[in-house]
């Protein structure tokens, strides 16, 4: 295991800038739809407002609901220590650290699902059920993507395949549009958002912030998948510059996908994830040659 204390700066950058990503995505969507859209910093306002509130709990709920809201951000922060900015080292790095990273996200998801079931609401049960289904299918694709990224293959078709598979996984895992709609809080279409219906106050602030951190981390993965096969930036400033630029590109891509695509029918979602798996298998075949 290697420790890199300079990496804490990257963690701080993530803490500060993570809520900006949803803002950029929403702005892109607004521009594409011919609207002005919400402020870029909306997510910051939301989190701060929520942290200032009191709380209301259903009498059905137990400590599990309260624990879920605490464990999710904690798992995200722990996971953040394992991801590097392209060209640098993460705070902690060892063989197989990406596996731990993926499973830390799994912890957050498990407790969010448990918290949803804790409310006894059938809507939240439905959300948890779908989340469980899609994330179980995403898991092998994500692990294969991480495996492929760890192989440090050259550019070309392999890198493109990996990037596309990664985008499929990250859209599904972050409840973005072709898989889930982050804006429809009260529709039966949604998956992730419905699970947190009964969270309020600071708990919901934690959950929102954790979701932003998760999106940020997937952005870091995307940045690594897109930048590293092309070149390896040297020096702190260029690395940071390239990284932040790629994050903006990432947010724009997600925003464009959301603007251009309709939500998939639920029966189509597993197929899309399976297609991501097929891309990974293909990429492995090419990468090993």
């Amino acid at each position: 295991m290697k420790l890199e204390l300079a990496g804490t700066i990257d963690v701080l950058i993530a803490f500060l800038l993570a809520p900006l990503l949803p803002g950029i995505i929403n702005r892109v969507k607004a521009v594409c739809g011919g609207r002005r859209g919400q402020p870029l910093l909306q997510c910051y306002h939301d989190v701060i407002k929520l942290l200032k509130k009191g709380a209301v709990y259903s009498r059905t709920t137990s400590h599990v609901l309260r624990a879920g809201a605490v464990i999710a951000p904690a798992a995200m922060v722990a996971a953040l220590l394992l991801l590097p900015v392209p060209g640098r080292r993460a705070v902690m790095s060892f063989t197989g650290d990406v596996v731990l990273w993926a499973y830390l996200l799994g912890v957050a998801r498990f407790f969010t699902m448990a918290a949803a079931l804790d409310t006894g609401s059938s809507f939240e049960g439905m959300g948890a059920s779908r989340e469980a289904f899609f994330s179980a299918l995403c898991e092998p694709v994500l692990l294969l993507v991480l495996l492929l990224m760890g192989m440090h293959s050259s550019g070309g078709p392999v890198a493109a395949l990996v990037a596309v598979a990664l985008i499929i996984v990250l859209l599904s895992e972050n409840s973005r549009i072709p898989f889930d709609d982050p804006n429809t809080h009260l529709e039966l279409t949604m998956i992730h958002e419905v699970m947190v219906l009964d969270h309020g106050g600071p708990d919901f602030g934690f959950i929102t912030y954790a979701a932003a951190l998760k999106l940020w981390m997937y952005g870091m993965l995307f940045s690594a998948a897109a930048v590293l096969p092309v070149f390896r930036p040297e020096g702190w400033l260029p690395q940071t510059g390239v990284f932040l630029a790629s994050m903006v590109v990432f947010a724009v891509i997600v925003g464009m996908v959301e603007s251009l695509m309709a939500r998939l029918r639920l029966t189509r979602v597993p197929q899309a994830i399976l297609a991501g798996g097929a891309l990974c298998v293909l990429a492995i075949a090419f990468a090993l040659r």
Binding site: Q271, L274, A275, G277, A278, V281, L282, A285
Partner: peptide
């Protein structure tokens, strides 16, 4: 699609 993966 699963067939496709297996066939490959």
């Amino acid at each position: 699609i699963i067939f496709g993966i297996l066939a490959f």
